[in-house]
Nucleic acid binder design. Structure first.
Length: 609
DNA sequence: CCCCCCCC
C-alpha cells in the first residue's frame, strides 16, 4: 500500500479551531498518561509533517487499538472524528485534540520513519500568520514576577511582555514528557521543595547553587540553578507556588542522589525563563500531598525511607556545630523531639539555617514532608535532607487537633520512644541457635541479621589474629610496612614511623546444636583475651609462650554472644559470615527466663509469657 | 558545575 500523504500544516488549523474534515496525520509517539484515577488514557504525539502536537489524546474507546499494536510510532492515520476542547479555566488557553475515531492508513512498520521535519505547533504559532489569533487570551500577568535572562535592561518591559505571552499562551508540556532530545517546551509545575543556597569548592572550581523539586499531574523533576541563575531565581521561587518554566537543560538524573521518579533532571541556563502562574490558572496542577504517618508507625518503617508526619515540638535541643570527619565540612544541627496522639516521640534533626533559626520554646506544631529515617541501634530518628520540607504551625485541621490535644496535657503520657536506642539491650535481639541460623538462611538479605545465642569458646586462632593499623585516632586501616621503619596508610595517604596493633580474631564457638567460626575485632578481642590489642600484638610477635596462655585461657568458657550475620562475597564465592557484636557473661536469671519461655512454647503448657 | 546532612 502506498504511503499516504499527510495533510501538511493542518494541526495549526485544527488547533486554531477550524473543523477540518478527515485530516491525515502521523503518530510520532504514544504513551500512557498517569492519571489520578486508575483510568487508562493515552496521549499522542501527532505530526502533520510541518507541526506536531503533543496535546492530543486518544478517546478511551480507541484504547483497544493501542492494545493491538495498531498505533505504534510512525503510523499514519486518518482522523474520522475528533474534537477539540479547551482545558483549564476560561482564558487559560489550552486546546486539546481528542481523537474519537480513526483509520490506520499505513502501519508504523510500513512507514518506518518520521515524515518531514515538524516543529511544535505552539512554538511555531507566534511567527505563523495562520495562528495569529491565539486560541484564547492569556490570563493577566504580573509583570514584576516575570524573569528572563536576556540582560538587556533597556528593553526590559518589551521583553517581559513578549515573554509573558510566550510562556502563558503556550500549551504546556507534562513533566513526564521532558527529555534531553527536545528543548522546545514549557512546563507548568508546582514547587514542592527548595533547598537553601549552598556553595561548593573543589578541584573543578567553585560556585553556588540551589535546587528545587517540581511537580505536575504527570510527574516530578529536580531542577538546579547554579551561580548567576542561583542569584537570579532564588527569591522568586517559593515552595507551593506554581510557575511556568522553559528552556532548562535536561540531563540524566543521577539516581544515587535523587529519589524523584524521573530519569532526568534539569539545570537552569542563561536562557531559562520562570514565571509565576496565577492562582486562577493553577487548574490541573496537584497540591503538595502529605502522607501523614503517626509517629508510632515510624518504628515499623525501613531505614532511609521517606516520612511525612506532624507532631508537637515537645523538646528542642541546643544548636550543635561539628566538623564532618569525612568531608571536613562544618555542620550545624538541632534536634527536635516531636510527639503526637499516637503517644510516641521521635527525634527530628534540622540542619544549617533551619537549625539556627528554629525557635522551639513555644512548642509549635511541626509538619515535615520527605524526612529521612536514620536507624541506629534499633532506634529510628528523622532527618531533614534534600527535598524535605518543614512547616511550622501549618493551618490545617491536623495541626489544630494536635494543638488542642497537647495543650490539654496530651503529650504527658508518651509511651513509645521511636528514637530510643536498644543498643546492647538483650530484649531486642532474637535467640537463635547456630544450627537454626543456617536453616533459616540468616544473613542472605540485603541487611544483616542479628541474633544472640549462648555458646562456648572452642578455640581462638592465633594465626593472623592481629594486624598493624594506621596510628591515626580514627583510622583503623591496615598499613603497608615500607621496610624502612615507615608504615604507609593508603586511606590517610601518609607514612608514619609507628603503627597500632588491631585485632581481627577468628574463633570457633559452639552451642548445643552446632558450631561456627566467628570473627571479632579489637574491642571484643580485648575483652575476650583480657589484654589490650597492643599487649596481644606484642605477645604474638615476640613472646609465643605468653600469647599461648592468653589464647588458651579462655577455651571452654561460655558467653552470651550477640552476632551479626551477613552473606559476603569473596571473589565469586558467597560466604555466610558471623561477626561478634558483643559477648557477655551469662546472666542466668535472664537466660533461664528465655529457656522457660521456649519450653512453654514447645510444650504448650502454661501461659505464653 | 552539586550530590554534604556527621557522630553514637
Amino acid at each position: 500500500m502506498p504511503i499516504a500523504s499527510l495533510t501538511t500544516g493542518v494541526i495549526a488549523r485544527i488547533m486554531h479551531g477550524e473543523d477540518v474534515i478527515q485530516p491525515v496525520l502521523q503518530i510520532l509517539g504514544i504513551k500512557r498518561i498517569n492519571t489520578n484515577t486508575d483510568q487508562e488514557r493515552y496521549r499522542l504525539l501527532m505530526s502533520d509533517g510541518k507541526y506536531y502536537n503533543s496535546y492530543a489524546m486518544l478517546a478511551s474507546q480507541l484504547n483497544e487499538m493501542q492494545h493491538r499494536g495498531l498505533l505504534n510510532e510512525n503510523t499514519i492515520v486518518r482522523l474520522e472524528k475528533y474534537m477539540t476542547s479547551m482545558v483549564g479555566k476560561e482564558g487559560s488557553g489550552k486546546r486539546v485534540l481528542i481523537v474519537t475515531e480513526l483509520t490506520v492508513l499505513n502501519s508504523g512498520e510500513e512507514v518506518k520513519t518520521k515524515i518531514g521535519d515538524p516543529v511544535t505547533y505552539e512554538n511555531a504559532a507566534k511567527q505563523d500568520t495562520v495562528t495569529k489569533a491565539t486560541p484564547a487570551a492569556s490570563a493577566p500577568l504580573k509583570k514584576e514576577q516575570s524573569y528572563n535572562n536576556n540582560n538587556n535592561n533597556n528593553n526590559n518591559n518589551t521583553m517581559n511582555s513578549t515573554m509573558n505571552s510566550t510562556l502563558s499562551a503556550s500549551l504546556t508540556h507534562p513533566i513526564a514528557s521532558l527529555s534531553p532530545y527536545q528543548n522546545k517546551w514549557v512546563i507548568k509545575a508546582r514547587v514542592t521543595s527548595k533547598t537553601a543556597i549552598r556553595t561548593w569548592s573543589n578541584a573543578r572550581g567553585e560556585g553556588k547553587l540551589f535546587s528545587m523539586d517540581l511537580m505536575d499531574e504527570s510527574g516530578e523533576i529536580r531542577a538546579t540553578a547554579f551561580k548567576e541563575q542561583c542569584d537570579k531565581f532564588y527569591d522568586l521561587i517559593e515552595v507551593d507556588n506554581v510557575y511556568f518554566f522553559s528552556k532548562c537543560q535536561l540531563k540524566p538524573a543521577n539516581k544515587q542522589y535523587s529519589q524523584l521518579k524521573n530519569d532526568y533532571e534539569m539545570t537552569f541556563t542563561g536562557e531559562t525563563m520562570v514565571q509565576l502562574c496565577d492562582d486562577e490558572d493553577n487548574g490541573g496542577i496537584p497540591e503538595i500531598k502529605f502522607d501523614l504517618i503517626p509517629i508510632s508507625q515510624v518504628s515499623n518503617m525501613e531505614n532511609k525511607e521517606s516520612v511525612d508526619t506532624i507532631g508537637i515540638c515537645k523538646e528542642v535541643g541546643e544548636l550543635q556545630t561539628f566538623t564532618s570527619r569525612t568531608t571536613n565540612k562544618e555542620f550545624k544541627k538541632r534536634e527536635l523531639t516531636l510527639v503526637d496522639t499516637s503517644n510516641a516521640a521521635v527525634t527530628l534533626t534540622l540542619w544549617g539555617d533551619e537549625a539556627v533559626n528554629f525557635d522551639g520554646h513555644v512548642q509549635p506544631v511541626i509538619l515535615v514532608k520527605g524526612s529521612r529515617i536514620n536507624e541506629f541501634n534499633g532506634g529510628k530518628s528523622l532527618s531533614m535532607g534534600g527535598g524535605s520540607i518543614l512547616k511550622i504551625n501549618p493551618d490545617i485541621p491536623e495541626a489544630h487537633k494536635l494543638r488542642g490535644w497537647f495543650d490539654n496535657g496530651g503529650g504527658d503520657n508518651i509511651s513509645t520512644m521511636v528514637s530510643a536506642r536498644t543498643g546492647g539491650g538483650s530484649f531486642s535481639t532474637d535467640w537463635v541457635t547456630l544450627k537454626d541460623a543456617r536453616i533459616r538462611n540468616l544473613g542472605s538479605g540485603d541487611k544483616p541479621d542479628y541474633f544472640q545465642c549462648k555458646a562456648v569458646v572452642h578455640i581462638v586462632k592465633q594465626e593472623n589474629a592481629f594486624y598493624k593499623a594506621c596510628p591515626q585516632a580514627d583510622c583503623n586501616k591496615k598499613v603497608v610496612d615500607e621496610g624502612n621503619g615507615h608504615y604507609r596508610c593508603e586511606r590517610c595517604n601518609a607514612a608514619f614511623p609507628n603503627f597500632k596493633y588491631r585485632l581481627l580474631i577468628n574463633m570457633s564457638i559452639g552451642d548445643w546444636t552446632s558450631n561456627r567460626w566467628v570473627t571479632c575485632f579489637s574491642e571484643i578481642g580485648e575483652q575476650l583475651l583480657k589484654h589490650s590489642s597492643q599487649e596481644v600484638g606484642e605477645a604474638l610477635e615476640n613472646d609465643p609462650a605468653t600469647a599461648e596462655k592468653m589464647f588458651s585461657d579462655i577455651n571452654f568458657s561460655s558467653y552470651i554472644f550477640k552476632l551479626r550475620c551477613k552473606n559476603e562475597m569473596y571473589g565469586d564465592m558467597t560466604r555466610n559470615k558471623l561477626t561478634v557484636q558483643s559477648m557477655s557473661p551469662i546472666n542466668y536469671k535472664e537466660y533461664n527466663k528465655h529457656l522457660i519461655k521456649e519450653l512453654k512454647e514447645m510444650t504448650g503448657i502454661g501461659p505464653a509469657n
